[in-house]
Write a protein that binds this DNA or RNA. Structure first.
Lengths: 264, 264
DNA sequence: CAGTGGTCTAGACCACACT
DNA sequence: GTGTGGTCTAGACCACTGA
């Protein structure tokens, strides 16, 4: 029983969690029990012990395992559910979120048709090759410049109307085995594929948007006039432990579509 | 004690909340106690009984008033804090959020300088006049076409560099008294002014972004070339009870600035 | 110091899904 | 019916703020 609580993810049933005592005055951090439980559960998720889409143990079981009350486990799960790491389904259990699930498929795509009608999305891969990271890419993925990344280009269509051109850069140490062939077989979202094939779940992303004039190649791909205005969306995507694994540059044709965002 | 619980906001100390029994099968709605408490508290906020920036009664006091346990009040407050309606400050109390507070000033402005350095924001009002709502404005504000709205134009500068041109349309029944004079005196955010002067708190907004080519007038105001790409941000802003009170069209010069968004 | 929010517990009971 | 999450309670104690 240590004050710096960090045992194995599934400790013996008799293991009890102990709150740390009087941390040094210079480090004012104090971590409540439920956060320590949350850390344990995050480790389990990061280690892939609980796979996307699967049910995690019940609250009472976890409470017994960790040697805390159900309410404490509950609070840990509450936070993780708020962060879309887990989803609770009353009467059934608590599940690991998955981009594979229709409920959260294309969850990170904020592009919407102006008329609000649903569209069939389709990803059309164009290229997929290994290359050294340029400075910007390396910085975004926290790599050394020149380290290998997987560069991927694709179009996204809504009901066969091409709306987005994406250039993506993925950590090669994780996604290096990906090929154009595999991408062409795929009919679901890329993040869904990444989960199933590489066990990497995208949990958070930062996007930066600006308006740009279409360059020749992009204009041609999106079937718009050269120099016509496009929305440039730059995205860094993170997996467990805030590790950046994808850097993406997307050109959105926002004439009949728009980027939707809800503020609160 | 009614099943359709909706008494005054601050009932007598002995008032007890009662869960409704077996609602009709066609209406499957079931509202837990803490949500009923939340509704009561929302009424108090909407009615202005608890003003922005002020402390609300303590959890134990509210529990006594509503005749429920502290934990139930707590859960109601938790939800409202998550929605940025209230802020908890340990050891001090729970407060009504306010755009007036430096911590949430310009909370809805997602524009950021590319270099990340802080900038001094300044609003430069251009015009302010009553006019009949056009179709789009009326729809956004849920008014009949032709009803009166207050039209307002302004520039936003970051360290004296003009970056945004905004056209806003406000419900005249609420904001009709606003004048250019008042706007020119103001040195804080508009939403802060609206709170202080009209008691209307903006709590939620929907934004739709697209790229457009700058028209002559806008280009001139933002000091960019005509037809150069701008980010058009359309926003509907809501106050308590999901009532839309503002419809806004903003042109953002996103060459050295970008629209930032975090996905999860 | 007193008062506020924050954590944790143990136990009872409700709503929901499946079998 | 059984098992899951969801609600509610009452009480103890901790952490933080400010007088």
């Amino acid at each position: 029983m240590s004050a710096d609580f960090h045992p194995s993810v599934v400790p013996s049933p008799t293991t009890h969690v102990v709150r740390q005592v009087a941390s040094s005055p210079t480090t004012p951090m104090f971590s409540p029990l439920y956060r320590q439980i949350k850390e344990l559960m995050l480790s389990a998720l990061g280690a892939g012990e609980w796979a996307p889409g699967m049910a995690i143990p019940s609250e009472s079981e976890l409470a017994a395992r960790f040697g805390v009350s159900q309410g404490t486990v509950r609070k840990a799960i509450d936070e993780m559910a708020a962060e879309h790491l887990l989803v609770r389904r009353q009467g059934k259990g608590t599940f690991v979120e998955s981009h594979n699930d229709p409920r959260s498929n294309y969850r990170f795509l904020h592009l919407r048709p102006d008329d609000g009608k649903a569209r069939q999305k389709r990803s059309i891969p164009l290229s997929c090759k290994l290359q050294p990271a340029d400075r910007v890419t390396a910085a975004a993925l926290r790599l050394a410049p020149g380290e290998s990344v997987l560069a991927l280009e694709r179009l996204l269509s809504f009901d066969d109307e091409v709306v987005v051109f994406d250039q993506m850069f993925l950590r090669a140490d994780i996604f290096g085995e990906l090929t154009l062939d595999v991408l062409q077989q795929e009919d679901r979202s890329l993040y869904s594929l990444f989960e199933r094939r590489f066990g990497v779940r995208m949990i958070r992303a930062e996007e930066r948007l600006r308006a740009v004039a279409a360059e020749r190649r992009v204009a041609k791909l999106l079937k718009v006039e050269e120099t016509s205005p496009l929305t440039l969306v730059e995205r860094v995507t993170y997996t467990y432990g805030d590790q950046p694994v994808e850097w993406r540059r997307g050109f959105y044709a926002t004439d009949r579509y728009h980027y939707y965002n809800e503020l609160s």
